[in-house]
Amino acid sequence: MQTPARFDYERATSLQGAIASLKEHEDSRIIAGGHSLLPMMKLRLASPTRLIDINDLTDLQYIREEGDEIAIGALTRHVELLKSELLAEHFPLFKDAELVIADPVVRNRGTIGGSLCQADAAEDLSAVCAAVKATVVITGADGTRTVPMDQFHLGPWTTAVGEGEILTEVRIAKRPGGGSAHEKVERRAGDWAIAAASAAVWIDGGVITDAGIALSAVGLTTIDLTRAEELLRGQPPSEELFEQAGAIASEDCMPIPDSRGPVDYKRHLAGVLTKRALRKATARALS
C-alpha cells in the first residue's frame, strides 16, 4: 500500500492556534476530511512538513440562518450539506451536487472548506457556491476578510486564501424568487465530473432578475459564465433563452482534453448541462 512521507502532526485546539502554527511552520497544511490531501500524500505528490488537524474545531461545523444569509462553517461535512433541510429549501443545488460528489462514505468526512480550498477545477462545490454568489470568509491572525466566490479561485489549485490564513465560512444571501440546480455527467458514480454546471436564477414578476451560472471540469479552474448571466437578466425564462445560455457556455468554457473526453464533447456537455440546470432551477424558482 502507498504510504505518505514523514511529517509532524498537531491537533489544533483553537482557530487562532491553528493560524499561528500555519504561520510558524513552513510547508505546513491544514487537514480536515483529508480525502483529497491524504491520497496525494500517499502518492508522494504532496509532502507537507506538518499537518494541522482542525477536526476538533467544531465551532466551524454548522449550517444556519443569520439574518438574510445562510452561513456554512468550513468544517461542515458533505453529508451535512446533503441532509440539510435549510439548504434544500433555499439552495437545492447543494443536494443535487452532494448526491454525486464522491461516495457516501467519503461524504461523511470531506468538508466544504476542504473542497473549496483544494480548488480542483473538476470539484463540484466551487461551481455550486459560485452560482449562488456566495462569499467566503477567510480568517488570519489579524482577523477576517470576505471574498466573493468569483474572486476566490486565482488559478488551478490556487485560491485567495493566503499564507497563515484559513477559510472559515461560506455565506450565501437568501433572496426571494430563487431557484437553483446542479447537473453533472460522470463516467461512473463517484468519479470527478466530465463536466458539471451549477445554475441559480432569481425570478420576480415573470422575469429573471438575476442569475448565476458556473461550470466545473471545463477549464483550468471553475468557470463563471458572466456573459450568460448578463443575457438572462431582465428576460422572461424560456427554452430558447436557456439554449442561448447553453451556447454561451459551450463557447466560453476552456476545456482540456483528457481521459474523460475531448474538447468538443466537453464544450457540448457544458452547453447541455447549463441548459438543463437553468431549466430545473427555473422550475424550482416558480414552484
Binding site: M1, R11, I31, G34, H35, L38, P104, V105, N108, R109
Partner: peptide, 15 residues
C-alpha cells in the same frame, strides 16, 4: 457509528 475509509485517515486523527 459512521462508515469511514480507514486508509484515508491518520491514526492520530482518530484519537
Amino acid at each position: 457509528g459512521q462508515p469511514l475509509k480507514s486508509c484515508t485517515a491518520l491514526a492520530a486523527m482518530c484519537e
